[in-house]
Amino acid sequence: MKGMRYPDEFRSEAVKQITERGYSVADVAKNLGISTKSLYKWRREMSGHNQPQLSSDVMALKQEVTRLNAALKRATEERDILKKAAVYFASQPE
Rank of each mutant, 00 (worst) to 15 (best):
K83N: 08
E9K: 05
A75R: 13
K37T: 15
V25D: 03
L32T: 05
I81S: 10
Q92M: 15
L61K: 11
E45Y: 02
I81N: 09
G33F: 01
K41G: 04
M46R: 05
S56V: 07
S55E: 15
D80C: 05
E78T: 07
K37A: 14
S38R: 06
S91P: 02
K73C: 10
E64P: 03
S38V: 01
R79D: 12
Y88G: 05
T36R: 13
S56H: 09
K62N: 14
I81E: 07
V58H: 13
F89I: 03
Y40E: 02
R79P: 04
A85H: 10
P7A: 15
N31M: 12
Q53H: 10
S56M: 12
L61C: 11
Q92Y: 11
D8E: 14
M59S: 10
Y40L: 01
F89T: 00
S38P: 00
E77I: 04
K73Y: 08
A90G: 02
A14H: 03
E78S: 06
M4P: 06
D8L: 11
Q53E: 15
A86R: 11
E94I: 11
Q92F: 09
N31L: 10
L32S: 00
P52L: 01
S12A: 07
R21N: 11
M46W: 00
L72D: 08
H49M: 09
R79Y: 13
S47H: 06
N69T: 07
Y40K: 03
H49P: 03
T66N: 11
R79F: 12
T66R: 13
G3C: 05
L54H: 11
A75T: 05
Y23V: 04
L61R: 11
T36P: 06
D27T: 15
E94S: 15
Q17N: 07
E78R: 12
E77R: 09
M59V: 11
A14R: 01
A71M: 08
